[in-house]
Write a protein that binds this DNA or RNA. Sequence first.
DNA 1: TCTTTTACTTTACAATTGTTAAGAGAGAAG
DNA 2: CTTCTCTCTTAACAATTGTAAAGTAAAAGA
Lengths: 178, 178
Amino acid sequence: MNAIEWAALFGLETMTVPAKTQLVKEGSVARKVYIIREGALRIWLSKDGAEITSQFFFEGKLVASLESFLSGQPSEFCLETIEACDLYVLDKMTFDELMRGDSEFRDWFQQYILDRFLYYSKHVLSFLRDKPEERYLHLLQNNPELLKRVPQQYLATYIGITPVSLSRIRNKVAKKKE
Amino acid sequence: MNAIEWAALFGLETMTVPAKTQLVKEGSVARKVYIIREGALRIWLSKDGAEITSQFFFEGKLVASLESFLSGQPSEFCLETIEACDLYVLDKMTFDELMRGDSEFRDWFQQYILDRFLYYSKHVLSFLRDKPEERYLHLLQNNPELLKRVPQQYLATYIGITPVSLSRIRNKVAKKKE
DNA sequence: TCTTTTACTTTACAATTGTTAAGAGAGAAG
DNA sequence: CTTCTCTCTTAACAATTGTAAAGTAAAAGA
């Protein structure tokens, strides 16, 4: 079972939101998780007034400010749509009931947490092992869809550099290809 | 229940190993998890012949090359003792039985995975938001024990820089304090 | 259509980090 | 005690990135 199938099975309500909608704001408590039927979102945090993107989410994925949703603490992050999105909504009360009562869903969600854990392990690794230019090249190779779909300014902070520096790297890479 | 209490409850065997022992080597499959009675360990990976430390573990913690232990795939990392260690050993067969048969243990382990997930989220954050100097200062503030117990060359790669650069930063910070 | 806004690029300069090599100091081994 | 090894420091130079500002191009709004 994937996230969309769970959403359909539970008959979750859907909502449609325009681009640049903040579903969870910094400092507020996340009370819902969303399953993406269509669209793209990102999680960002602010540093000295600038936005730093920490993750992207696309069709078929479950997305939330998880650490806030699970702990009940105010979120350090903002969850915001990049494009107009079509989303299933799962509120915390229903989620808690499912986690208590539906062992299949519980197993599925725990697998989801494990996947996210493994994703983060690899992500940390790329910061330890690779230079920004290498991180960009890996994205280009392993996730070209991401580059086409996401504004470069978001991509830059996602790989830990400024938009200016990413522009320079792209220029450098393009010249090498000639 | 914490990891040590579980180990005692299950009557796990213990082992004592000297410093710089590789419990899991790069490319081998991790078949055990360890619970630390005494000592310190680290996980590292190699990049162009150099070792990059990705995490530290101390007393009371469960440690393994988790992605290898859970997936059965060869480990990308090496699990190595920093000091002489006194460890409980939990092999995969016993672990799998416990995960199937003991719902309390299963819940405990899943909470452990969740904690690790949250730890990694924050770790990624520090790479996105902070400069190496800030990462060092945060360690100094939040984890001074770590700095005393772990060789600086390991610490340097842990925060994503070279030992030379860490030495420079320490010098700079010391001068600021005068 | 014209204006405004936004995203991206480019440039120049400052700051930081990587690299290489040499040196100082502490501890281990003989 | 002496030598060897290992860790950390320091220095010089190259490479990379950050910052600030100006320029370009394309999309959005009136």
